[in-house]
Write a protein that binds this DNA or RNA. Structure first.
Length: 867
RNA sequence: GGGCGUUUAGCUCAGUUGGGAGAGCGCUUCCCUUACAAGGAAGAGGUCGGCGGUUCGAGCCCGUCAACGCCCACCA
């Protein structure tokens, strides 16, 4: 028995520090807790190790926790595997910014010291986010926590690299890639964010070397002309038939360059002639390869003009753009400049404009990996929820180009490739001691590291021990689920599919649950730069972790963005207060409650009603949860709890609970219903429910109990009539401004015999009326309350304004009359009667009958009142 | 240039086998009744973006238009 006195208001702060350690120490978060359970596995989308929790994480992990806590209670052996990501460029940038405060760059400190510095950062901040995860009450298995750069995962990364290399799916080559001149590294295509920007299209004339005139070309990046090595036209373009084979002289540079014909040129665009800059444009690079053109790089890795740029050397690309344009104008080679909107690529980590840059990089040939990954989704081995994301997935996968995986940063998995002075390339999981070709022991490891997403792609199996065939791997691969935001479907989901299928022969997870982004109440994406980002820990401080969790899960319709207003969180806290106080009431009136079962076998009508509703709601909640429709599931549960259990059943229980002779069965039912509510709500509000459990049931941990399975009960039709009667009386009372404590006299007329003995007492409590008889209408002036087959007659005292009462009745009759008309019109339609299903027609008929009676009675009443 | 999403009460949003329009917050009136004023009771408020179609019946299915948002795309 809980003898503790509960505070009258729910205070999240005092209870949310209490239960986490108990759950963890009981081993509840480990799959071993249910050794015989069906395996269930989901891996956390690993947050950046030095990052901090934001609302996107909170949404993602709330969905995780709501799922895994329920599955545990349902007896599954649940593994929710946590961990963090080294987040290559992002983390490196953070540490570089910190160095910058001391006036240093990473090149000042050198690679080894820099990497040490990052590790020490990781040591200092690496557990901040995991502490935050605990504070929000999330329940992953911390004993299995992983980090993408721990020893095991690094080995998995090297193993995958070596195998793909041996299969010919990883290669090294000189290609034009996306280059961030600020981060000084290559980026994958997907790591470039395009935005439409106002620019300038300049049209230049390159003069022929062998005669008058010249050829005009257009460009948005004038500075690149310094590196032009040709002009290209379409072979079928009649305008330039005579030009192909001739040469032009490159202005400012003086280089003589040829005019070539190439299919890649679109004769419709611009002048139909295109300047070819092989070192700084991917199309041009390909044209140059086809025509054996020289490649002249005029920008270095910081996008500064090289000595190839002559007098422009040393200028930044944007300075050079203006300077070159100006110089061309002075030489009369600038035909015109026009405004031009075009997409400009930016680095997704630092927003710097990305430069196409020729360099030697490592690539994954993705098409052989993508094909089975597409097929797996097409055939249903994996499904997206909601399904429309499959289209986006297919479209992206089908158009994939090779994935540039080498990065010129220092923080990450170093590429397991070594070079020997003899020219030998050694790709191996473990560092080679000597060159297999020449025996030289002086080998140099490749300086680059791998794209962070390369290691992320292995997360569903590298975390389980792969390449070692561990028990966890056998038991938990494929994972049951993956839960993530749509913004990383390409970065992460698609790559996990490719790698999982390729290396394990099976999809990495069966269901892919996609959720939206958290937005502010005006629908804007939250971001630090926008200044509208809300720190979840501030929300927790102000409202509590449970209210935040409940608000998030209620707001998260499948696949839709979540506009989070603090009003939602405040409303969730109000609900917490409501259930807190319902429990407080129960603690005072209910004795021992069993942890499981205990459902009454032959309950009285009111108890049968609420128990029947509990069973219906539990079943519906389970259906919706199984379909990942949590917002709907919790709406059903929330409305049941508040507007049925609290507003009706708790009120109905008060009278019998005060009477020792009748209290026992009511207390038992109230106890069981509240107990199951705590269980059903527990996945969303674990702290609150656990605290109330300790007060109410006081036996073990709620988190470790079984999920409720209440038996079904026969419906109680008289309850519906009773509720309608109470509503009618209350409405009458309110419209006439009658105080609730002033009893009204009511007589009931019940031709159908549904009036139950318990009504009298409850009508007194809930509607403030005194029932005087169950028979015909009284002689004195009265009005009627119509509730299904029952009529209530309330004597009209001098206090009642008869005009107001006539208005009230007229309004009620007109409303019923309008509904009746609609129903009768439907029933008069022969097509409806003939074609609609029989049960729909019968329902409509019953509705019409009931409405007809109601209209008759209200009309009769109006006549009685002399209208 | 493609593709996707959204458009429902004053605000933010739910509404999947098409069959009587919902929640939270806000608003109006009454009530500090012994679980709860972070509460209770009673109300007001919607041509479900426009048009057309399918159907006995459409917020829900089809077509079309409009507005807003997002993703993808090597047209200089």
């Amino acid at each position: 028995m809980a003898a503790l006195v509960m505070q009258p208001t729910y205070d999240p702060k005092t209870i949310e520090s209490r239960w986490y350690d108990a759950w963890e120490e009981a081993g509840l978060f480990r799959p071993e807790y249910r050794p015989d359970g069906r395996p269930f596995c989901v891996v956390i989308p690993p947050p950046n190790v030095t990052g901090s929790l934001h609302l996107g994480h909170a949404l993602n992990m709330t969905i995780h926790d709501v799922i895994v806590r329920r599955r545990r209670m349902q007896g599954w052996a649940v593994l929710w595997l946590p961990g963090t990501d080294h987040a290559g460029i992002a983390t490196q940038n953070m540490v570089e910014r910190k160095l910058a405060e001391e006036g240093l760059t990473r090149f000042d400190v050198g690679r080894d010291r820099f990497v040490e510095e990052v590790w020490s950062w990781k040591a200092r901040y690496g557990d901040r986010i995991t502490q935050q995860i605990r504070r929000l009450g999330y329940s992953p298995d911390w004993t299995r926590e992983r980090f993408t750069m721990d020893e095991g995962l690094s080995r998995a990364v090297r193993t995958v690299f070596v195998r793909l290399f041996d299969e010919g799916l990883i290669y090294r080559g000189d290609r034009i890639i996306n280059w961030c001149p600020r981060c000084e590294t290559a980026l994958a295509d997907i790591e470039v964010e395009h935005s439409d920007e106002a620019g300038e299209l300049v049209v230049l004339q390159y003069p022929y070397t062998d005669g008058e005139g010249g050829i005009t070309v257009a460009t948005t990046r004038a500075e690149t002309m310094l590196g032009d090595t040709a002009v290209a036209v379409h072979p079928g373009d009649g305008r330039y038939a005579g030009a192909v084979g001739r040469t032009v002289r490159l202005p400012l540079v003086g280089r003589e360059i040829p005019i070539v014909a190439d299919e890649a040129v679109d004769p419709e665009f611009g002048t139909g002639a295109v300047k070819v800059t092989p070192a700084h444009d991917p199309n041009d690079f390909e044209i140059a390869q086809r025509h054996g053109l020289p490649v002249v790089a005029i920008l270095d890795q910081r996008a500064v003009v090289t000595t190839e740029g002559g007098r422009f050397a040393g200028l930044d690309r944007f300075e050079a753009r203006a300077a070159v344009k100006h110089a061309l104008q002075k030489e009369g080679r600038l035909v015109r400049a026009e405004d031009h909107h075009h997409a400009v690529g930016h680095c997704y980590r630092c927003d710097t404009v990305v430069e196409p840059y020729l360099s030697r990089q490592w690539f994954v040939q993705v098409q052989p990996l993508a094909r089975p990954a597409i097929e797996a989704v097409r055939s249903g081995q994996n499904r997206f929820i909601p399904g429309h994301w499959e289209k986006a997935y297919f479209h992206w996968m089908e158009n994939l180009r090779d994935w540039c995986i080498s990065r010129q940063i220092w923080w990450g998995h170093r590429i397991p490739a070594w070079y020997c002075s003899c020219g030998e390339l050694i790709v191996a999981v473990d560092p080679p001691t000597a060159c297999p070709a020449c025996g030289d022991e002086d080998l140099t490891q490749d300086h680059d590291v791998l794209d962070t997403w390369f290691s992320s792609a292995l997360w569903p199996f590298s975390t389980l021990g792969w390449p070692v065939q561990t028990e966890d791997l056998a038991r938990f691969y494929p994972n049951t689920l993956l839960i993530t935001g749509f913004d990383i479907i390409y970065f992460w989901v698609a790559r996990m599919m490719m790698m999982g299928i390729h290396f394990l022969g099976d999809v990495p997870f069966v269901d892919t649950v996609i959720h939206g982004l958290v937005r502010d109440h005006q629908g804007n994406k939250m971001s630090k730069s926008r200044g509208n980002a809300i720190d979840p820990l501030d929300v927790v401080d102000e409202y509590g972790a449970d209210p935040l969790r409940l608000a998030l899960i209620q707001a998260a319709a499948p696949g839709q963005d979540v506009p989070l207003d603090m009003e939602w969180v405040a409303a969730a806290r109000k609900f917490g207060n409501k259930i807190w106080n319902a429990a407080r009431f129960a603690v005072a009136h209910v004795g021992t409650i069993p942890a499981e079962g205990g459902y009454p076998t032959d309950p009285a009508p009111v108890e049968r009603w609420i128990l029947g509703r509990l069973a219906e709601v539990t079943r519906r909640f389970d259906e919706l949860s199984d379909d990942y429709r949590f917002s709907d599931a919790f709406a059903v549960l929330y409305n049941f709890a508040w507007s049925e259990v609290f507003d009706w059943y708790v009120e109905l229980s008060k009278a019998p609970l005060r009477d020792p002779a009748r209290s026992e069965p009511v207390a038992a039912t109230l106890g069981v219903v509240l107990r199951d509510l705590l269980k059903l709500f527990h996945p969303a509000v674990p702290y609150l429910s656990e605290e109330l459990w300790s007060q109410l049931v006081g036996n073990g941990l709620l988190a470790g109990t079984d999920w409720p399975q209440p038996p079904e009960y026969d419906p109680v039709p008289s309850m519906v009539t009773f509720q309608e009667l109470v509503g009618g009386i209350r409405s009458f009372r309110a419209e006439h401004g009658l105080a609730a404590r002033q009893p009204l006299l009511i007589q009931l007329l019940d031709p159908a015999g549904v009036v139950e003995p318990w009504w009298e007492e409850q009508l007194g409590g809930l509607a403030g009326v005194e029932t005087i008889a169950v028979e015909g209408p009284p002689a004195r002036a009265h009005t009627r309350i119509v509730a299904g087959p029952v009529q209530g007659f309330i004597e009209l005292s001098d206090l009642i304004d008869l005009d107001a009462e006539r208005d009230r009745l007229r309004k009620a009759r007109n409303a019923a009359g309008a509904d009746l008309d609609q129903a009768e019109r439907k029933l008069a339609n022969p097509d409806f009667v003939a074609r609609a299903p029989a049960d729909i027609v019968a329902k409509e008929q019953a509705k019409a009958d009931e409405l007809r009676v109601r209209v008759e009675k209200l009309s009769a009443q109006l006549a009685d009142l002399g209208s």
